[in-house]
Amino acid sequence: MNWKSFIIGAAAGAISSLAVREIISKNSTVSPERVLANVKKQFKQNGDINGSWIHMEAVPYQKQHIHYQVYKGGISKNNEGTAEQYEFVADAKTGTVIDVHVTK
Rank of each mutant, 00 (worst) to 15 (best):
Ile8Glu: 05
Thr96Cys: 03
Ser25Met: 09
Thr82Lys: 15
Ala11Asp: 01
Val70Leu: 05
Val97Ala: 03
Thr96Gly: 14
Gly74Ile: 07
Leu36Met: 07
Val20Pro: 06
Ser76Phe: 02
Trp53Asn: 08
Phe88Met: 01
Gly47Phe: 05
Arg34Glu: 12
Ser17Asp: 01
Thr29Ala: 02
Asn27Gly: 13
Thr94Gln: 04
Val102Leu: 12
Val97Arg: 13
Asn79Gly: 00
Asn46Pro: 00
Lys26Tyr: 08
Ile49Asn: 02
Ile98Ser: 10
Glu22Val: 00
Lys72Val: 06
Asn46Phe: 11
Glu84Tyr: 01
Ser31Leu: 11
Ser52Glu: 11
Leu36Glu: 02
Leu36Pro: 02
Ile15Thr: 14
Trp53Tyr: 13
Glu87Asn: 09
Ile54Met: 03
Ile98Arg: 15
Gly74Tyr: 07
Trp53Met: 06
Gly9Ala: 13
His101Met: 05
Val70Pro: 02
Glu80Met: 08
Leu18Tyr: 11
Glu84Val: 01
Ala58Asp: 04
Ala10Cys: 03
Ala10Val: 13
Ser76Glu: 02
Thr82Arg: 15
Gly9Met: 03
Ser76Ala: 06
Gly51Arg: 07
Ala19Leu: 08
Ile7Ala: 09
Asn27Arg: 14
Ser17Leu: 10
Asn50Glu: 10
Val89Met: 03
Ile66Asp: 08
Tyr61Ser: 06
Ala10Glu: 09
Gln69Ala: 10
Met1Gly: 11
Ile98Cys: 07
Lys104Val: 00
Tyr71Gln: 03
Glu87Leu: 02
Ala10Asp: 02
Glu33Thr: 11
Lys4Pro: 00
